[in-house]
Amino acid sequence: MGIAGAIQLVWARGTGQEGKESAGTGLMFSGFVVAVCGVVIGQVIKRSDGDSGPEAVNPAPVDALAVASTPAPAPIIEAPAAGPTDWTALIWVLGSVAAIAVLALAWCLIMRTRSHIADRKVAARGRADDFAAALDIYSDVVAAYAGYLTDPCSIFVRPLLDNVDDPFTGAFITAFAEAGDLRTERCPDDAARITAFAGAASAARSAWKKADEHARAIGMGMRTSADKRTIGRIESALTLALDDAATPAERDAALTAVHRLSEGMLTIPDRVAGSVRTQQCTPVPAQH
């Protein structure tokens, strides 16, 4: 019974069936109690048998003549005193139960440790996957925003993305900065930090989509025919300034014309002037 209880306890621990752990423990304890009681009762009975001798029988009363003519009874030989109780069997039982209990406990600890290690590996893989997904979202936003900043001609399509006072652009800049602050070079061990970064990256992506769509919808805004012609001349001059085939003097003259024509009408960001000789004007794909 004790061995069966130990086996049931180990099985319950190993398979994670917590409801059967108490049953196995009770069965093992019951077997231990039954074994101890059996040994103790056996020793008591054995000692009682050793201590008992011939029963004394009260003889019936006889007269004096009968007593005188009756030969003297043989002397009663007393049984030798019982020796010390032999507890060897009990010691073997207790030792066996203790050994089984130690083995069961050791096995439970091994299985629990293996389970904890497996759980930690699963959790680590989950954190890595979540961080990679969040990093992909953040990288997409970085690439989209960089595509705007590195294209000088984008100021004719989405000029509001350079205006931080615009509500949509301002919301994006804030969300993008928060996501950048939470980004780490390696996957954090804290799942809460990964969750925070994933939320910030998703918020930045949503804010970028709204700001980009809003900037495209507004474009250059409502302009008169004269303003539109001027904007066309500015775009042509900027294209010439970006043309590698033009001479340095032509590019410088074109850049000067860009600043002169845009004064009071269009703000030319410093990044455009800084990259005008190294960047090519590329078409801006529509964002969906």
Rank of each mutant, 00 (worst) to 15 (best):
A99Q: 01
A23T: 13
G264N: 03
L255H: 01
G199Y: 04
G14Q: 10
A128L: 11
R13D: 15
D244H: 10
A123N: 07
S236A: 15
F168Y: 08
L240K: 06
A64R: 07
R229S: 13
D86S: 08
A200F: 00
D130S: 13
D181N: 13
K20Y: 15
G95T: 09
A82K: 10
L65H: 07
A203H: 03
I218Q: 14
R223G: 02
S96H: 04
A106H: 10
V39E: 15
D166H: 03
C281V: 06
G199L: 11
C153K: 06
V62F: 02
G42R: 05
F172D: 01
G274D: 15
W208D: 00
L103A: 14
T25P: 00
Q43H: 09
G24F: 04
L161W: 06
G219Q: 15
V164S: 15
I218Y: 15
G147H: 04
R193A: 14
A81Y: 06
R271C: 01
P59M: 07
G31Y: 00
D212T: 01
P167G: 08
G126C: 08
A200K: 00
G50E: 14
S275W: 10
V141L: 03
A215P: 01
E21T: 14
V40L: 14
T184K: 02
V67Q: 13
H214W: 12
V34A: 14
I234A: 02
L94D: 02
A79E: 09
D166P: 06
D140L: 10
A177P: 00
Y138T: 01
R233Y: 12
S115N: 12
P84N: 06
P71I: 11
I137D: 04
A217Q: 12
V157A: 10
L266K: 08
I231A: 05
V36A: 11
T113C: 08
E250G: 08
L103Q: 02
L9K: 09
M265V: 04
G26I: 12
P84Q: 04
S154M: 05
P285R: 11
L240H: 05
S52N: 12
D63H: 07
L161C: 01
M28H: 07
R114D: 10
T195R: 09
D189A: 11
F131E: 00
A204D: 01
K20R: 15
C187A: 07
A98P: 06
D165W: 09
A198S: 13
A23V: 14
E21S: 12
T184Y: 01
A286K: 10
D243M: 04
S206R: 10
P159C: 02
T278A: 13
K228Y: 07
A245E: 13
I194P: 02
R125E: 15
F168W: 05
E235G: 03
T239G: 09
I77C: 05
E250L: 13
F131A: 00
R260S: 14
